[in-house]
Design a protein around this nucleic acid. Structure first.
Lengths: 334, 334
DNA sequence: GCCGGTCGTCGAAGCGCTTCGACACTCTCA
DNA sequence: TGAGAGTGTCGAAGCGCTTCGACGACCGGC
């Protein structure tokens, strides 16, 4: 085990070339003859050479690492976060970068630290809130950054997210096509609206506007996440709106409870009430019945965020705002 | 913005000392007079100095970064993973280390790469399986590593996990105390047992042994994760065992479905059937009724894993196996 | 047959830090 | 009063890499 670590100069000696030549073979920044390149590459694999990350970062002023900053509040839609994280890592690897994970309990100090110490070249922030205290810091940092989610004032930043307004509208449209005229949106817990997490409000706006545009009747309610609360909400909703036949649920944790509540209230899905969810695909598929849903494209968002941050690193111009088009997957619940 | 990056020699000049003195102030590896130390620290904060991570890693052969390797299979108990990740990051920061996130889609190559390039000093692997193909690699690596979960042969490795056998036993014991004599375990989906994820099997063993020890009657069944499948499982279980009055559920995704199924089958919890879950606390609290549960102590496991890996980095001896004692939280379901 | 222009390669100068040995002091205790 | 043992500080030698300028060798064009 632990074969002593191989350096570039050993590779150079083994291949009979200069150290700089090996470096140029690896970076491709100067032309190298096919013959020399082959010899160098052979030596590299013969010796099992891996460039030392620290030395490389020191000399090139690039660490090839990007920071992924977890949201300020844990607890909410956690599985989706994991998907983002995983997608970001995978995408970063495509650009030959690694990902450093940062939590919020260090506050903004952690962001400042990794940026100032040149540990990372760039940052991706997850789950940005409307009034996010990390945002001012980003503006003064030299390192490029990309936000997943939108703060209130995002001019001059680079933000990417699912187009939740369009997602809300898409659900309404689908229910309208199916002939429903009285529908409701069950959203996030009220605390989420209050603290101004952007996506919850934007879905609701999209819903409300589309309801008006299609001449439907619709209500939008927050929705807590324990079964009992969900049950009451659904029961009251059905009592208050006897003609209601379509439901949009944008709350991953509550969606199972909603279905259980409907079951208990003897409403059949989709016969009595049609249900469209905005949630990750696997949640929709695992439900009973499988739910027609607008999926939350975590992989795509993560990939896009990394693409944008790489563009910025290369000095290419990027848009302030990137909204991903929602996609509706039709299953048995509508 | 982007105040030009400050180096140690500028700090030295500003404080009127040698570069090495600044370094020793920072590392504490040599004694420094209180006076000099103060002057240096003042200069550091006056100039806003942050040591360059790459240079430091190059000179000291320590990157102060540990790798956190995500499990091979995504999809299962994802929220718990996020907790682990978050706990690992927080714990690592206490030791002045950062965390690099690695996914499995690079396979073992990613592990080899970050280790060989000295990007990380040590590794923590999450959600290790009984026959984990990453394990042989770890054995030949010079860098220390800690596993969360147990592979089949763990001698010579360092593993940490909740003591799932004790957790299963603890649930049985609790039901026995409450006077139940005929009980069942609903576990992970059968595919999880088949691929040999350690914790599922260990819970079952603990359950089975404790059932025997207490002279109870018990069955252990796998449990799928869609409502319909859960419903059938529960219904058949109650049909086959009319005297059954206690249920242990070790399946985070199914626990809500189990409760919904019992509701639909007109069994009241805890009156007709008592339910104990092995799951994260928030899932247990959010259920209706709130579940008596053995919590999965993600924070503690993460913290312990980091502590162990730091011990190994410092050359201190560590045990092969660290099992955390399960804790039962009694709520309204038993 | 000579000139300018690639092409391919080399050597050396750092990048910013840690660490080692050296050295000038100041104490202590014979 | 001087040898020995600490203290506190300095200078310099790297750590392993990238990158810049230099320089032969070789090309086609006149």
């Amino acid at each position: 085990m632990s074969e002593r670590t191989v350096t570039i100069s050993e590779v150079a000696k083994h291949a009979g070339v200069a150290v700089s030549t090996v470096s140029y073979v690896l970076s491709g920044k100067r032309t190298i003859s096919a013959d020399t390149r082959r010899r160098v590459l052979d030596s590299i694999s013969a010796l099992g050479y891996h460039p030392n990350a620290g030395a490389r970062a020191l000399a090139s002023k690039r660490s090839n690492v990007i920071a992924l900053v977890l949201p300020l509040r844990a607890g909410m839609h956690v599985p989706v976060l994991m998907r983002f994280a995983s997608a970001v890592v995978t995408a970063a690897r495509r650009f030959d970068h690694d990902v450093l994970l940062l939590t919020a309990d260090e506050g903004t100090a952690g962001i400042r630290r990794v940026a100032a110490s040149a540990l990372v070249d760039a940052l991706v922030l997850m789950d940005v809130e409307l009034d996010d205290r990390r945002v001012p810091l980003l503006r003064e940092l030299a390192e490029p950054s990309v936000l997943i989610g939108f703060p209130a004032a995002f001019a001059g930043l680079t933000c990417v997210d699912l187009d939740f307004a369009a997602a809300g509208a898409r659900c309404v449209e689908h229910l309208a096509e199916r002939g429903h005229v009285e529908i409701a949106l069950l959203g996030a817990p009220s605390v989420v609206y209050e603290r101004g997490t952007g996506f919850a409000g934007r879905t609701r706006e999209g819903f409300v506007e589309a309801v008006a545009a299609h001449g439907l009747q619709g209500v939008a309610l927050p929705c807590e996440e324990t079964f009992d609360e969900v049950y009451e909400t659904v029961r009251d909703l059905l009592l208050d709106h006897p003609g209601l036949s379509g439901l949009v649920v944008h709350n991953e944790a509550a969606v199972g409870h909603v279905l259980a509540a409907l079951r208990q209230l003897d409403r059949r899905v989709p016969h009595d009430v049609a249900v469209v969810a905005i949630c990750p695909d696997d949640v929709a598929e695992r439900a009973s019945p499988p739910l027609t849903s607008v999926l939350i494209p975590a992989e795509e968002v993560g990939r896009e965020a990394v693409r944008l941050v790489m563009d910025k690193l290369e000095g290419r111009p990027v848009p302030d705002s990137t909204l991903l088009t929602p996609l509706l997957a039709i299953r048995s619940s509508t």
